[in-house]
Amino acid sequence: MSDALLTLEGVHTHIGAYHILHGVDLSVPANQLTMLLGRNGAGKTTTLRTVMGLWHASQGRITLAGQDITARATPDIAQSGVAYVPESMGIFSDLSVKENMLLAARGARTIDDVDTKRLEWIFDMFPAMKKFWLHPAGKLSGGQKQMLAVSRAIVEPRQLLLIDEPSKGLAPAIIQNMIAAFRELKAAQTTILLVEQNFNFARQLGDTVAVMDDGRVVHSGAMAELAEDSALQARLLGLSLGAHQ
Results as ranks from 00 to 15, higher is better:
Phe132Ile: 00
Glu87Arg: 00
Asn177Ser: 14
Met89Trp: 12
Val82Met: 13
Leu102Trp: 00
Glu120Asn: 15
Ser80Glu: 05
Ala78Phe: 11
Leu170Pro: 07
Arg158Met: 14
Lys131Met: 13
Phe126Glu: 08
Ser96Glu: 06
Ile175Trp: 02
Pro157Gly: 12
Ile111Tyr: 03
Ala78Val: 15
Asn177Met: 09
Phe123Met: 14
Thr110Cys: 04
Asp124Pro: 00
Phe123Lys: 10
Tyr84Met: 10
Lys145Val: 11
Leu95Ser: 06
Pro136Ala: 06
Ile91Gln: 03
Ser141Val: 01
Asp115Arg: 03
Met129Cys: 11
Pro136Asn: 11
Pro86Cys: 05
Ile77Lys: 01
Lys168Ala: 13
Met147Gly: 09
Leu119Asp: 04
Ala137Asp: 02
Leu103Glu: 00
Gly81Asp: 04
Lys168Phe: 04
Met178Cys: 06
Gln79Glu: 06
Ala137Arg: 04
Ile163Gln: 00
Ser141Cys: 02
Ile174Pro: 08
Leu140Lys: 05
Lys145Glu: 12
Ile163Asp: 08
Asp115Thr: 09
Ile77Leu: 01
Thr110His: 08
Arg118Cys: 04
Pro166Tyr: 09
Ala137Lys: 08
Ser88Gly: 12
Leu134Pro: 00
Met125Phe: 04
Ile91Val: 15
Leu134His: 11
Ser151Val: 14
Asp164Phe: 11
Val114Asp: 01
Leu134Val: 02
Ala180Pro: 00
Leu134Thr: 12
Lys145Gln: 15
Val155Asn: 10
Thr116Gly: 06
Phe126Gln: 12
Gln144Ala: 13
Glu156Arg: 13
Asp124Lys: 14
Ser151Leu: 09
Pro157Thr: 09
Tyr84Thr: 10
Ile122Gln: 07
Ala181Asn: 05
Glu87Gln: 15
Ala137Ser: 14
Asp115Ile: 08
Val114Phe: 00
Ile122Ser: 10
Ala104Leu: 15
Leu102His: 04
Ala153Thr: 06
Ser88Gln: 15
Phe92Thr: 08
Ala149Asp: 10
Lys98Asn: 05
Gln176Leu: 04
Val85Met: 10
Arg118Pro: 09
Ser151Tyr: 00
Glu87Ser: 05
Pro172Gly: 01
Val114Tyr: 02
Ala180Val: 03
Tyr84Ser: 09
Asn100Asp: 02
Ala149His: 03
Lys168Gly: 01
Ile179Gln: 07
Phe92Pro: 03
Ile111Met: 09
Phe126Pro: 11
Ala137Gln: 02
Pro86Asn: 08
Leu140Ala: 01
Trp133Cys: 01
Tyr84Arg: 03
Trp121Thr: 14
Val114Leu: 04
Tyr84Gln: 09
Ala180Trp: 01
Ile154Arg: 06
Ser151Trp: 01
Arg109Thr: 15
Ile179Asp: 00
Gln146Leu: 01
Ala108Gly: 01
Leu170Glu: 13
Glu99Trp: 03
Arg118Lys: 14
Val155Leu: 10
Val155Arg: 07
Leu161Thr: 05
Val150Glu: 06
Gly81Ala: 12
Met129Ile: 15
